[in-house]
């Protein structure tokens, strides 16, 4: 079970059970859909930016596996209250972590709590579960509402 606990760390199990920022945002400046046709995971993310470009509020709803729900929950925590201008760098750091070589330690300083998702590297078929919410949020941030975000 050691391997599995690498993936399903307690933080992930907790966030799956009680996802943070889960639900609708009635007032939002940005939103986007995400869909993974392979497994049917669906997400919708909402973002409320202040005039100064700060993420005042963020929420998500949808259905998916523990990895995808926990990843979305952790993502909303990570970006709430931060400048939206920082999102792209965090997106890249996260993307790098989940696709990097197993020997490379996740950069705790930059990723903070998100580092618990580093375990997905060992499970190639599950990486997209962790990245769907990031791609979806990126479409929301970039304002491309027309087509649902995908992980490829």
């Amino acid at each position: 079970m050691f391997d599995l606990r690498d993936l399903y760390q307690q933080v992930i199990v907790d966030h799956n059970k009680s996802p943070r920022n889960f639900g609708k945002l009635d007032a939002c400046s940005h939103e986007a859909d995400g869909y993974n046709p392979l497994c049917g995971d669906k997400l919708h993310v909402y973002l409320q930016l202040s005039d100064a470009g700060i993420v005042e509020d963020v929420a998500f709803e949808g259905e998916g596996c523990a990895i995808s729900i926990a990843s979305a929950s952790l993502m909303t925590e990570a970006i709430k209250g931060k400048p939206v201008a920082d999102f792209e760098a965090l997106f890249r750091d996260f993307q790098h972590m989940v696709t990097s070589d197993l020997a490379e330690q996740p950069d705790d300083e930059r990723l903070g709590k998100l580092a618990v998702l580093g375990g997905v590297r060992e499970f190639p078929s599950r990486i997209k579960c962790a990245t769907l919410c990031w791609h979806t949020m990126r479409s929301a941030v970039q304002g491309s509402h027309n087509t649902p975000a995908k992980t490829e």
Partner: peptide
């Protein structure tokens, strides 16, 4: 209840048990 099929698929795989999870 409480465990998504894809998580089940991964967990069972690590026990050597191959099942399908999906639509």
């Amino acid at each position: 209840q409480g465990v998504h099929p894809h998580d089940l698929g991964t967990i069972l795989d690590r026990e050597g048990i191959a099942i399908r999870a999906g639509h």
